Simulated assay, not measured.
Amino acid sequence: MDWKIELIHVPVTDVDRAKEFYERIGFNPDHDQQVSDDVRFVQMTPPGSACSIAFGTGVGGTLEPGKQDTIQVVVPDADEALAHLRSVGAEAQGVDEQPWGRFVTFADPDGNSWTLQQLPAWSAGATG
């Protein structure tokens, strides 16, 4: 039986601001539904990913905005990812060289932080 992670909730304070930020860095806006007066659901997918993020009002868990810091995304080229993020106005730090990969970090407007990893060439499945 396959187990697939397909959706991760990212807590935000301003849904429109978060949607604009994620669109600006290249995420595809899959859904934006105002389900009721109290519930709005937004789902966005990073380019090439099988896993999406979701945020909105009246959705998600108990994590406070700005506290999500556990998402790591594999990219083929850390330098290219850093250049792209900076070219669209996202504050990104990197490239952090480690034996287990090259890392770029950035945060959304609420302070939720992301780590992008370029796998080392020796790693099985390395893309760069």
Rank of each mutant, 00 (worst) to 15 (best):
M1H: 05
I8R: 03
V10L: 14
V10G: 04
R17N: 07
K19C: 06
K19S: 15
E20N: 09
E20I: 02
R24G: 03
R24C: 01
G26L: 08
F27Y: 12
F27M: 02
N28R: 13
P29M: 12
H31A: 14
H31Q: 11
H31I: 07
D32A: 11
V35Q: 11
V35P: 01
S36I: 03
R40T: 07
V42P: 01
Q43A: 06
M44F: 02
T45L: 09
T45F: 05
P46E: 13
A50D: 15
I53F: 10
I53L: 12
F55W: 02
F55C: 07
G61R: 09
E64D: 13
Q68P: 00
T70F: 08
T70A: 12
T70Y: 08
I71G: 03
Q72E: 12
V73N: 01
V73L: 15
V74T: 15
E80P: 00
H84G: 08
L85Q: 06
V88N: 04
V88G: 04
G89A: 10
Q93A: 13
V95A: 07
P99H: 13
F103W: 09
F103P: 01
F103N: 05
P109C: 12
P109Y: 04
D110N: 12
L116T: 08
Q117N: 15
A126V: 10
T127D: 00
G128V: 10
